[in-house]
Nucleic acid binder design. Structure first.
Length: 560
RNA sequence: UGACCUGUGGUGUAACUGGCAACACGUCUGACUCUGGAUCAGAAGAGUCCAGGUUCGAGCCCUGGCAGGUCAACCA
């Protein structure tokens, strides 16, 4: 499947420059370093495509590393989902699956080294006191009274912290850097804290855990990462990471951190904390709810890896913090699914049609094209009979100008079938239209008119007795505001769209869909792209609408 | 009253060591069509945050502003 030609971004340019200068023996090695504290979202997909994409472009490597330094938030479930998502997106870390916890021993040794060099000390103060002494961005901090403890005492205390002799929160290990630095992160950052929590990989072995800032840069260093790509908010951490690597460095090799702007999408939230809240408080049905911007949500919704990769490439990579219109994402799926999705006919809001001049108890099979964009996908047979369903929206008793579909006395084409003319409208006692009578023209079989007669519209339809009754779930944006998380005084949940999920139970699809497996993609002609959901049973298939087709009729209506 | 980062059509990105601001999405026309889809053809829309400066020439360089973002978790 062809993908767009890859765009060059500023990171590629910097790598080119590094290569030209012969840095790091001209190696290129990146990594994708998620914390396993939630499911991956589309913003992570951008980072995954970037990091693995760079490795591919430069003939280098890309590691998958879990930054699992906080056992209180991390779980194996997340580790597994993350691997599944990265693989599904089409990327391979080969044998390079790592964990920050792989380095706990080394990190601990490094901390001891810093203590011995007089570059780290144990502080007995509580977090509030330490925080107050840090100062503010505009005012320098003040030094801790424990800053000048002897190396021996520091060593002894740190070993006893490690042994679990002290309570959580009673002591921390801090790097001794500069309390007056204009960069807050250099003001004697905490590098180890006491935590008596069970770790998903190291179990109960450790009573002290390294802070992320103390683990991340060193992990990159030990893995031989050359380009540590991360998001903008870590820019101010870079001097600290460099400081730690300075204490370790034993050659010319050094990872270079490059920051880029995280992805923001309109009408959604993109923070794990907020997504977790939606899941925990049951505002959605789990991390893979098709309305979620998670990779698993998009997968279940019917997005394809190709479309997400193309999207990632189209949005580019910069340091400008912007907001991408979801319509670009939708364009990306439509573009891919248009070329690849099996076409099928399905009626979402059925209106019964009786072809009065078609014989009773008879049926025939008509040939339909599986994908007009790809003749290689072949054709299939669609059953036709006297009683059909068409879309309610495709009939109007009093059609306005420019409504081309069925109306009393009007002739339209039933796709791949016949020309039919509406002869009678049947209503119930409430005046509700319940059935249409039509006649068909037998010589128009297949949908062609031998006499060259034109018809303004082609409708999709399903033979009533052959139809597969299904449930179809229609999704709309989860939030009604462009930037639900961007309001200071309003909680993002206040913007939740009450109509983000609409379930239709009386949908009729052509028999072809019986063959499908969960996640199979279809275009329901004239409606949109859909895929089979995991919730399907043999009695009741369930389909998700991935994205509707562009609909210029509906758009024209909306403008009024 | 700090440090760091960022300012290019509505949105997202381009513009090689200065050389007529380009592309995509979106929007709007029209053509074609057995999907009011797709496709094709075309249009509108920015003079690059502002003000100076250097230069034959500045989105790119310099100076000074302005605006936005990030940083004060024993989170990552």
């Amino acid at each position: 499947m062809k993908e767009q030609p890859k765009k060059v971004n500023f990171i590629h340019l910097q790598i080119d420059e590094d290569l030209k200068q012969g840095k790091n023996n001209e190696r290129v090695h990146t990594r994708f370093p998620p914390e396993p504290n939630g499911y991956l979202h589309i913003g992570h997909a951008k980072s995954i495509c970037l990091n693995f994409g760079i490795a591919k472009k430069y003939g280098g490597k890309c590691n998958l590393r879990f930054d699992d330094t906080n056992p209180s938030k991390e779980e194996t479930e997340y580790v597994e989902s993350i691997q599944e998502d990265v693989r599904w997106l089409g990327f391979d870390w080969e044998d390079r699956l790592f964990y920050a916890s792989d380095y706990f021993e080394k990190l601990h040794g490094f901390a001891i080294q810093l203590i011995k060099e007089g570059k780290a000390y144990v502080d007995d103060q509580n977090s509030e006191t330490i925080s107050n002494q840090k100062g503010t961005p505009t005012r320098p901090g003040t030094e801790s009274p424990f800053r000048d403890r002897s190396i021996e005492e520091n060593l002894d205390l740190f070993m006893r912290m490690t042994a679990g002799e002290f309570d959580e929160g009673s002591k921390v290990l801090r790097a001794k850097i500069n309390m007056a630095s204009p960069n807050m992160h250099m003001r004697d950052p905490i590098i180890y804290r006491i935590m008596k929590a069970h770790h998903h990989r190291t179990g109960d072995k450790w009573k002290v855990y390294p802070m992320y800032d103390f683990a991340h840069g060193q992990s990159d260093y030990w893995e031989g990462i050359t380009h540590s790509i991360c998001t903008l908010e870590f820019e101010v951490h870079r001097p600290l990471y460099d400081w730690f690597v300075d204490q370790l460095q034993d050659s010319d090799y050094r990872p270079r951190q490059i920051e880029f702007a995280r992805l923001n999408l309109t009408y959604t939230v993109m923070s794990k904390r907020k997504l977790l809240e939606l899941v925990k408080d049951k505002h959605v049905n789990g991390w893979d709810d098709p309305r979620m911007p998670t990779i698993s949500g998009f997968r279940r919704r019917g997005y394809t890896p190709e479309s997400i990769r193309n999207f990632s490439d189209r949005i580019g990579v910069t340091k400008v913090d912007g907001m991408i219109d979801v319509s670009l994402l939708e364009y990306s799926v439509r573009e891919h699914l248009n070329r690849t999705a099996q076409r099928v006919m399905g009626v979402l809001n059925p209106l019964k049609v009786v072809i009065t001049n078609y014989p009773e108890n008879e049926s025939e099979e008509l040939e339909a094209i599986n994908n007009p964009e790809d003749p290689g996908m072949g054709t299939r047979k669609v059953p036709f009979s006297r009683e059909l369903y068409i879309e309610r929206d495709d009939f109007m008793e009093e059609p306005p100008r420019k409504f081309f579909r069925l109306a009393p006395g009007r002739e339209v084409r039933l796709r791949y079938a016949y020309f039919v003319t509406c002869t009678k409208v049947i209503k119930d006692e409430n005046g509700e239209i319940v059935e249409l009578h039509c006649t068909y023209d037998p010589v128009s079989k297949g949908g062609n008119s031998p006499d060259g007669r034109k018809v303004k519209a082609t409708l999709h339809w399903v033979s009533a007795i052959h139809a597969v009754r299904s449930e179809v779930r229609l999704y709309d944006r989860l939030f009604s505001d462009e930037d639900p998380g961007g309001h200071k005084d309003v909680d993002f949940k206040d913007f939740m769209n009450p109509d983000s999920l609409k379930v239709l139970n009386e949908c009729y699809l052509e028999p072809f869909v019986r063959e499908s497996k969960p996640l199979d993609h279809f275009q329901f002609e004239r409606l949109g792209y859909f895929n089979l959901d995991y919730d399907s049973t043999t009695e009741l298939p369930v389909f998700n609408r991935t994205v509707p087709l562009r609909d210029s009729w509906a758009r024209a209506q909306n403008k009024k």
